[in-house]
């Protein structure tokens, strides 16, 4: 029987990155330097077992380079595990880097279409959401100017507005809420709370621990590629802070 209660399930998953000192990219280099040092394998994630239930909001915390973002990338299938399996149930959208697929010469409105298409939406679905997206981004009349004329804050606002309106079941967010001004940040968190209420699964990587405590129920502390602690958000964040101090 199929177990449908989870949104993401990770079983015995490890991920190695090849560490090249001098990456051979051309045929000549491959042939001439064939006996050069083999690339070192670096194990970024070691034997991760994890189950995220539907409707859970989970924070991934840990110091830089501990493997949080890699874990998110594995969940979205941008990269693939070296061993082990990752199962995903439901439509998944990731906000790893905002504005992927934005084309600087096209207007904000056209880019909404491009970007939403990258997320797998059809034209009809985008048409339906267009007004919500524009309204959320607060770009007003700028929506019809080319994106290259935008300030970085406007760019982020547009990108976030598209991604948040995709209507996915699972939302992966990587440290991008530090965008925009105070007002827009608050709005983003309000939107995330709203999505949480709707029963969406949210996995968020963040260093702003206060907002994480506020939003999430569960936190996973990743340390040197392993799960150090997994549980109630307040406890895990407090333990993490104690360790860091």
């Amino acid at each position: 029987m199929k177990d449908n209660s989870y949104a993401i399930k990770i079983v015995n998953m490890s991920k190695n990155f090849k560490l090249y000192y001098d990456k051979p990219n051309t045929l000549k280099e491959r042939l001439v330097f064939w006996n050069r040092k083999r690339p070192d394998d670096r194990e970024v994630l070691k034997n991760i077992n994890l189950e995220i239930k539907k409707g859970e909001t989970v924070a991934l915390i840990g110091i830089n380079g501990s493997g949080k973002s890699t874990l998110l990338k594995l969940m979205t299938k941008i990269i693939y595990p070296t061993s082990g399996k990752i199962y995903v149930h439901g439509k998944l959208t990731s906000l790893l880097e905002l504005g992927a697929g934005f084309h600087p010469d096209f207007t904000g409105r056209e880019n909404i279409y491009f970007n939403a298409a990258v997320f797998g939406l059809t034209k009809k679905e985008i048409d339906k959401r267009l007004n919500d997206i524009i309204k959320f981004s607060e770009l007003g009349e700028f929506i019809d100017s080319p994106v290259r004329t935008y300030s970085s804050g406007m760019y982020m606002r547009l990108a976030f507005s598209v991604a948040i309106n995709v209507d996915a079941d699972i939302l992966l967010i990587d440290e991008i809420l530090a965008v925009g001004d105070q007002h827009f940040q608050e709005k983003c968190y309000a939107k995330l709370h709203e999505l949480k209420k709707k029963g969406k699964t949210i996995v968020i990587v963040s260093h702003s621990l206060d907002s994480v405590k506020d939003l999430c129920d569960r936190a996973i502390w990743i340390y040197e590629g392993k799960i150090r602690e997994d549980g109630n958000v307040n406890k895990v964040v407090d333990d993490y802070l104690k360790e860091c101090a």
């Binding site: 979205t76 299938k77 941008i78 990731s94 992927a100 990258v118 997320f119």
Partner: peptide
């Protein structure tokens, strides 16, 4: 490459 690194499709 840019977009391949950032989103799944």
């Amino acid at each position: 490459g840019g977009i391949i690194k950032k989103v799944y499709f």
